[in-house]
Design a protein around this nucleic acid. Structure first.
Lengths: 323, 323
DNA sequence: ATACTTTTTGCAACCGGTTGCGGTATACGA
DNA sequence: TCGTATACCGCAACCGGTTGCAAAAAGTAT
């Protein structure tokens, strides 16, 4: 069996409480005994059992990270950053995939709560009501969605959309199409609102669509029918699907139609033509979200809303219109 | 505070041990009391504390999943599948990113051991010796690397390479280049061995290279110098980098040079031309790895080696040679 | 040397569960 | 009717730590 605090106590001839304090309250134990105890612990290979510790302290030093779909290229950078930041703060992270299923999401949260100090909800599909209820049991921070009175980190797509529309207007585009995402998506609504608020060009709203390549592929005929010379897609995956569909019909990008995506995921950087896109600061979002979470964990603060800037990355899929 | 087993006991007028058994040893309690207790637990919102339970049972119902780089597109499907399978078995999963650093990897394992029943090591960078030592503390299963006497799941790249070489030979290619990966990589060695063992064509080994786009980009001059008409790259990322570099030099793929990658990651499916690649069954690997892990957890079996088939997916980056 | 602080350590209860053992109540066979 | 097997339940110790309280030791001032 693994070596426990009692083994260390016995080996060093002190009481377990002294060993415990040697680790977690150094100032309460004689420096000499402390170093002796630590040395003995070291060569016995003792490692405190975090779960046992959590039982009395109420701090598990774990957080939960719940995402809709790990395999969606949007999330891995966020997960990676969150995990790295957590490690910096000496936290471990559970990650769970809900497969876009609210049912699963709720159950996951339920079973996780006792083992974590807080959970990060990324693009949750749960209703606001459910989230507010669950909130009683464990601190949250929500990423990529607005939930009243809850600590949140948002990425300002609105700004990105404005930048994109200006960029397109500058290239002479007057008629745009916005290929929207799933109907429940906060991001999609933001994009529509931002696009609608700009006077630069006419914009047709096409959707809702699934947030995937297939969604983009399926939207091609509508895009063509709309007569738009430039398209803003819900995300890069949709944009790539769109470009495939256009290519199949012999329509040149950006020669005939310009395309802009959202997210700046790896595939977009590698596509042909390379995709112009609105970059979402996902890594920063992950990092900041865990900081907010840990802060709200040990200060019970209500926590505010952090809005992260987005930017436009111009690559090869946008160009002047010739129509 | 959260509702505990004692709250339930009190509310239902029985001893805590009865409540405990109502949950985890149903046959030891009167069906009538059991349903009553369960009902009361339900509407008190009681959820057993898994960490506390683990203290006595020795089963945490958690596993650890350690990967080199979450953001590398190779891993997310594996993580997703592993997590899904774990959930099926009522397990939660910690995922940790080592950033390719063996130091971090070891430390992560150390701090995780007490909280998990076992850990999945994906493409570990640790030395065999270290792995064998750590093994004393927690059950492992290793993915994508061979470690003597340890439960392992491997993907048979060798077969994929043979298929690829045959495919190329069939297209008339006689002179190939293999752009290898990092020097420590098991996969890279397997690929070299398989390629060397085939008589179909001459093959030049170019490397080692970092397993990224940049690695591919950097290998371009060597590839050209080698006079090869077809290239097999360490992975899809390298292949994509290669294709960029070739395009920059005005060399057509597959017209002038054919390119094959390994992994079948999403970006390869979306690249232009679409990448011919050796598909690695990462999702299956994740699923099977957790099953092997859980099995070795509750049977102490030494566990064998599972080898998964790979296959060749022919897309657009390979074609007949005209030289 | 004495009284009073301050530092260091031990004791024991507690966190939220599980489980071996023994006690009761009921059922069953003789 | 009695003895005994069986089903159900409670008691209490335990898992591996932490922590309030008090005792012991060491230091300080008088």
């Amino acid at each position: 069996m693994a070596v426990t605090i009692r083994d260390v106590a016995e080996a060093s001839g002190v009481h377990v409480s002294t060993v415990s304090r040697a680790f977690s309250a150094p100032h309460l134990v004689n420096p000499a005994t402390r170093t002796r105890v630590l040395a003995i612990a070291e060569d016995l290979g003792y490692r405190p059992n975090r779960a046992a510790r959590a039982l009395t302290t109420g701090r598990t030093h774990n957080i939960g990270l719940i995402v809709a779909d790990i395999a969606n290229p949007f999330f891995p950078p966020l997960i990676k950053a969150a995990q790295a930041q957590a490690r910096l703060r000496d936290y471990h992270v559970f990650v769970a995939d809900t497969d876009e299923d609210p049912q699963v999401e709720e159950e996951l949260i339920q079973t996780l709560t006792k083992q974590v100090d807080g959970v990060l909800l990324c693009s949750p599909r749960l209703t606001n009501r459910t989230i507010e209820r669950l909130r009683e049991e464990v601190p949250f921070v929500v990423v990529n969605r607005r939930v009243k009175g809850m600590p949140t980190v948002l990425m300002d797509v609105g700004r990105g959309v404005r930048l994109a529309v200006e960029h397109l207007a500058g290239l002479g585009h007057r008629r745009l199409a916005l290929v929207t995402g799933p109907s429940g998506s906060w991001t999609s609504k933001e994009m529509q609102a931002a696009a609608a608020a700009m006077g630069e060009a006419d914009v047709a709203f096409l959707g809702p669509n699934p947030p995937t390549e297939l969604g983009g592929l399926a939207a091609v005929t509508d895009v063509i029918a709309s007569g738009a010379t430039a398209v803003l897609a819900y995300n890069d995956l949709v944009a790539i699907g769109l470009m495939e569909g256009l290519a199949e019909r012999g329509i040149d990008v950006p020669g005939d139609i310009s395309v802009i995506g959202v997210d700046d995921i790896v595939p977009g950087r590698l596509s042909r033509p390379k995709l112009t896109t609105i970059a979402m600061p996902t890594a920063a979002a992950g990092r900041i979200a865990v900081d907010m979470l840990l802060q709200s964990v040990d200060s019970d603060s209500t926590g505010g809303v952090t809005v992260l800037e987005t930017s436009l990355i111009v690559r090869e899929s946008t160009g002047e219109t010739h129509s």
